[in-house]
Amino acid sequence: MKAFAYAAGSIGLACALIFGAPAQAESNLEQTKVSIAVGGKTLFYYLPLTIAEQKGFFKEEGLEVEISDLSGGSKALQALVGGSADVVSGSYEHTISMQAKGQDIVAFVVEGNAPGIVLGVAKNKADKITSAKDLKGLNIGVTAPGSSTHMYVKTLLVKAGLSPDDISAIGVGAGAGAVAALEHGEVDAVANLDPVIAKLEADDAIKVMYDTRTKAGVDEVYGGDYHAAVLYTKASYLHDNPHTSQALANAIVHALKWMASATPEEIVNTVPEAYYGGDKALYTAALKANLGSYSKTGEFSKEATEHVLAVLKAFDEKVQKATIDLSKTYDDQFAKAAQSAVK
């Protein structure tokens, strides 16, 4: 276990879980009502969160979870910092960037090990835009400025020898608005995720240039394993609410284990119909393309955290100047304990 100064009760809980105590610990929860912010809940990036909600895994842990769906990951982070959310389902990248700003934000369970972000160029411009070097001067749609999709674009620009300021990042959200922005010519390209990308591909509206839905694509852009979606919160929250945090981790690990054994059709039938965007077959096909991106255990990899830090150092001046202690950006004890708690 990591050397976080948690209350003694959290150690007792972890030990109890290791020896097979039930996952439900309602009487021990510091709080039963938890607010979670997410930037684009319908995206496959955050599917384990929806599964945990729809399958009742949060309720099994004695939790009443309220999920606020915001336009992008940076907005979810703002909700946490501002105090309107207890926890965020968001990008692991934010834990590092916030440490560079002097704020201790800690991830405590992994949802995804591949971002699944795609950069697609409008078909009518694809003949002139063939690599990241050609992005200079363009308007590029991202879920929200400062979000993981925006960081993805910055990564591509820096690798191509450009500056992150060489493009204009336009917030287009994570749903129908993103599709409309590209198809109506409001942006020249988009950095987004499925099912948005799947819809644009089906409409023959984009040419995919960079794709992290696959292991090969992740390696090309990020150089190796890369943590994507996680649950993160303030270090003080983990300290003050160890049992509640454990219950949240249990629910997500339960969702990950269920997804690993379920068929794509079972997963699709679990999410709200509104997620399909009116085309269940397309949604199912897109899900199959993303199934390899999810964590099987919820646990952290030192290699993956190091790759995230290396990527951020390439374009984030605050990260470049800061001394980052990666061990303070994540705590693996909750996901590890959940392995025994969740069968």
Rank of each mutant, 00 (worst) to 15 (best):
M1F: 13
K2H: 11
F4N: 11
A7P: 05
G12K: 14
A14W: 15
A14Q: 13
A14C: 08
I18F: 13
I18Y: 15
F19A: 08
G20Y: 08
A23F: 12
S27H: 15
N28C: 13
T32D: 12
G39D: 06
K41W: 02
P48D: 05
P48V: 07
E61Y: 05
L63A: 01
E66V: 14
E66D: 10
S71P: 06
G73M: 06
K75C: 03
V81N: 01
G82K: 06
S84G: 03
S91K: 02
Y92G: 00
S97H: 05
I105H: 13
A107R: 08
G116M: 07
V118K: 11
V118G: 08
V121G: 09
K123N: 15
K123D: 12
N124Q: 12
A126C: 10
K128R: 15
S131G: 12
K133V: 10
L135G: 09
G146F: 11
S147E: 04
T149A: 14
M151Q: 14
Y152D: 05
A160I: 12
D166T: 14
I170L: 11
I170F: 12
G171P: 06
A181Y: 11
A181L: 09
H184Y: 06
V190G: 05
N192D: 12
N192G: 08
D194G: 06
V196K: 04
K207E: 15
G217L: 07
G217P: 07
V221G: 10
A229P: 04
L231H: 00
Y232N: 11
Y232M: 12
T233L: 06
S236Y: 00
L238N: 02
N241K: 02
L248S: 02
A249D: 01
A249F: 04
A251N: 04
V253I: 10
A260Q: 15
E265L: 14
N269H: 11
T270E: 05
Y276T: 01
Y276K: 02
G277S: 04
G278Y: 05
D279Y: 01
D279S: 08
A285S: 14
K288V: 10
A289T: 14
A289W: 00
G292K: 07
S293K: 09
Y294C: 01
T297M: 10
G298E: 01
E299I: 03
F300L: 09
S301R: 10
T305Y: 00
V311E: 04
V311K: 06
L312R: 11
F315K: 04
D316T: 03
V319D: 07
V319P: 09
A322R: 04
K328C: 01
T329Y: 04
A338L: 03
A338P: 00
S340G: 09
